[in-house]
């Protein structure tokens, strides 16, 4: 006889003895116990299954809320908004409006970008960046611009600022024609390139006594790579610089408490730590930050171009300005110069 048969025989004998000695039906007890064991199993299995989502959520929030000084999510938010402010001329993010959605070990960042044209701010686009952990995918950009910058920067040719060491392309002559033909009751955003690199404070020489009556919005910094238009590896670079705000948006690092050129240097150092993520968000395929930071440390902050805005009639005056070598027209809006 096998062990199994012996076992069942013993169980039957015990059940019989139990039934004989007591008035309780052992089958009923067994049925009840089996039922309780099954219920316990179901309840505990259900609990374990239902705990998966809260556990993953907690781990995700812990991941994004911890790490570094501000937590990983805040660091990535800062990288995204800073990279736009320093690589997209006259474009900024209102950080109060920035929305994040956190899912299982992923984050979706959604925000609008603005430009100041004339005296008013205009919403000119939106960014949607998906992160897997702290690595962003290429952002989905939607711009509502009449003259958007190329999605992929052109190779071997400057797009809107021309470094003094480079020849001004023929197409740029047409830009003055555009300015001449823009109606007087409009305000214009223009990218001007200087005849020589200059210190940021020297831009006042361009419009002494506010003649022409224009506002400087963003300064393009000479970082050494602009004269080659490509970095060490031959990848096209885009201008890098910093904004000048009269009325800074909330929580921008360029809030006029500190010299903007110093803030710019701090931001470059911070972006260098997160260069991989910053490069994915920027339009340029490379930011060449190491090369640029070394150049700035050696030569200081010199600017070779600026984004300006003003009435069309005032922008026209720049054609005869000795400091201005070339101009490219950006956006044109109805009169708001008050």
């Amino acid at each position: 006889m096998s062990d199994d048969q012996n076992y069942w025989k013993m169980i039957d004998r015990s059940k019989k003895q139990f039934d004989e000695n007591t008035n309780i039906d052992s089958n009923k007890i067994l049925k009840k116990s089996r039922h309780k064991a099954l219920t316990t199993n179901i309840l505990i299995s259900l609990a374990v299954l239902l705990m998966i989502v809260p556990t993953l959520t907690l781990l995700t929030y812990f991941y994004y809320g911890s790490g570094g000084h501000d937590g990983r999510a805040n660091t990535q938010i800062k990288v995204a908004s800073d990279v736009i402010e320093v690589t997209e001329p006259n474009m900024f993010v209102k950080r109060m409006e920035l929305e994040e959605t956190i899912d299982f070990f992923s984050m979706d960042l959604n925000f609008d970008v603005y430009k100041r044209i004339g005296k008013e701010e205009y919403r000119v686009g939106e960014y949607d960046i998906d992160y897997m952990l702290d690595q962003p995918a290429f952002p989905n950009r939607t711009f509502f611009l009449d003259r958007p910058h190329p999605e992929i920067p052109p190779r071997d040719e400057p797009s809107y600022f021309i470094h003094p060491a480079l020849h001004v392309p023929y197409e740029f002559k047409k830009e003055w024609e555009i300015v001449q033909n823009v109606p007087d009751g409009t305000v214009v955003e223009a990218y001007i390139s200087f005849s020589n690199p200059m210190k940021p404070d020297d831009i006042r020489d361009i419009n002494p006594g506010r003649d022409p009556d224009i506002d400087f919005l963003w300064l393009a910094v000479d970082t050494g790579v602009e004269r080659k238009v490509v970095d060490d590896q031959g990848l096209p670079v885009t201008p890098i610089g910093y904004p000048i705000y009269k009325d800074p948006p909330t929580w921008t690092p360029f809030d006029n408490r500190q010299d903007n050129s110093e803030v710019f240097k701090e931001i470059l150092n911070h972006l260098e730590i997160h260069e991989e993520q910053a490069t994915k968000i920027a339009r340029a395929k490379t930011l060449a930050l190491e090369e640029r930071i070394d150049y700035i440390q050696e030569n200081g902050v010199n600017i070779y171009g600026a984004v300006v805005t003003g009435p069309a009639s005032e922008i026209r005056k720049l054609q005869d300005n000795e400091y201005v070598r070339s101009l490219k027209v950006g956006e044109v809006k109805l009169w708001n110069w008050r």
């Binding site: 907690l58 929030y61 994004y64 938010i77």
Partner: peptide, 12 residues
């Protein structure tokens, strides 16, 4: 913890 992290992430 969720309230703590939610407040700290993108604090407004």
């Amino acid at each position: 913890l969720m309230i703590f992290f939610s407040i700290n992430i993108n604090y407004k």
